[in-house]
Design a protein around this nucleic acid. Structure first.
Lengths: 244, 244
DNA sequence: CAGCCGCACTCACATATGTTTATGCCCGTG
DNA sequence: CACGGGCATAAACATATGTGAGTGCGGCTG
């Protein structure tokens, strides 16, 4: 099972050093593995899961459907992300989670999380931190959505995804695999599919990216960052002193 | 000091029962009181506070400034809100916090929070939950922003603020005091001031609200909810079993 | 191998929201 | 009591983005 939880251990270790004991606890926390096919729901609004889902492989999205059938994606998740750690305390899902690709998911029982939070304060703080970073990303998305142009917003998202994938070793030089349709990008950015297409064309024409099939290559990182007004602070990628 | 921390105790008690011991810990957690005048910053982007701010009185907003000077507000805070509990673990502020009115703020040292998280697991979970609800609000705002019309978005925000103020005893029947300018509402919703004005006119014309000075009265809750596609689940106001 | 389906892409047109500028009210201040 | 400044409101106009409908490519599937 060790290999399977590795992504989370790796991620938490980018926040702060883990003791061997803590690593072992995390490794043993996984009760079972679940496989979800592309376009299937991992969780539905209203669900009250007894386990939290840790994404081992694949892409998933948190979403909400609005009355006219339109969908808004409020988070994109990649390998190593603890998709619904919050359901441990929030109890009821107020949004759905869909698998954008085939996904392999490790399930951690809430009872185990409770035990961890009773006995491993330092580890608990790191898990808490993990959910706080989710919140920081939400805030960043809010500003991008509210105050950036569609093009800038797209550039911003691309910068973020590139860095997040790079950190977990999923960037091949300047190229990442982004198996996400333009409609899904639209649901993420709050745009129509047509406009997503226009905006991607523009980024291509400007020589900022190449995007063929699923392969997205960043051709000019500096200018892309500038267009998207991107700074990575909110992702908490740099090592802080979190000895606390 | 007891009276001053009351708002937080009250709020956490809506999540789950607190022991006398836990209440005492919270009461003693406040190191000092700080007063911030309207339009002054409580915290600035880049700050590394050693204490977290608990809002006792007034309205505050988390915000970010974008290159062209435009501002996006990513959260509105009212009495009882733990404005930057996340700075305890996130360390560096990735956004600013401004006082929208005169504010009275209780400061809780991060060292105290660390001690609490070492020794009071149940209390820690409730504080964690508090930050998770902030996250849930962010997700809701994202969907409203991305997929609702300006009018619906405004209706949604009004519904949310009404309930949040009502829970802490700040609603007078169907009326709340909302000392927030139309420009600030625009920064919250990602709209121009002019359009905020149009949208408010429409809600008034439809007989959904009255809004004179700071006094906002909800004239037709059901229709307002419907227009804003509002359901309160994400606020976690109902008492769940959180005995864990 | 034919057919179909999902998806990227286009175009013409519609509209929600932004921008600019101006007015007038209210309220605090000198 | 006059003044000035912040704020809500208004109208005319500009534009970013949405809508609806359609094309064509590429890859499954029968």
């Amino acid at each position: 099972m060790a290999l399977m939880t590795n992504p989370l251990i790796l991620k938490l270790e980018t926040y702060d050093r883990l003791s061997d004991d803590e690593k072992k606890v995390l490794e043993n926390a996984v009760a079972r593995i679940r496989v979800v096919e592309a376009d299937d729901d991992v969780l539905r609004e209203g669900d009250r899961p007894a386990e939290s889902s840790l994404l081992l492989e694949g892409f998933a999205a948190r979403y909400k459907i609005v009355s006219n059938g339109r969908r808004q994606i409020s988070a994109l998740h990649v390998a190593g992300d603890f998709i619904d750690l919050h359901s441990f305390l929030l109890k009821t899902m107020d949004h759905g989670v869909v698998a954008l690709t085939n996904c392999r998911i490790a399930l951690v029982p809430h009872a185990t999380l409770e035990k961890i939070s009773d006995e491993y304060p330092h580890l608990t703080r790191l898990l808490w931190l993990n959910t706080l970073i989710d919140g920081a990303i939400h805030r960043e998305w809010l500003t991008a959505m509210g105050r950036l142009s569609a093009t800038a917003h797209m550039a911003h998202l691309i910068c973020e995804l590139y860095l997040r994938l790079k950190v977990i070793g999923r960037a091949d030089g300047d190229t990442i695999q982004l198996p996400v349709t333009q409609a899904e990008l639209g649901d993420t950015l709050g745009l129509s599919t047509v406009h997503v297409n226009r905006v991607l064309q523009e980024l291509r024409k400007e020589g900022l990216i190449r995007f063929q099939g699923d392969a997205l290559t960043i051709l000019d990182w500096d200018r892309l960052k500038k267009v998207g007004e991107f700074t990575s602070t909110y992702l908490s990628l740099q090592n802080e002193d979190r000895s606390s």
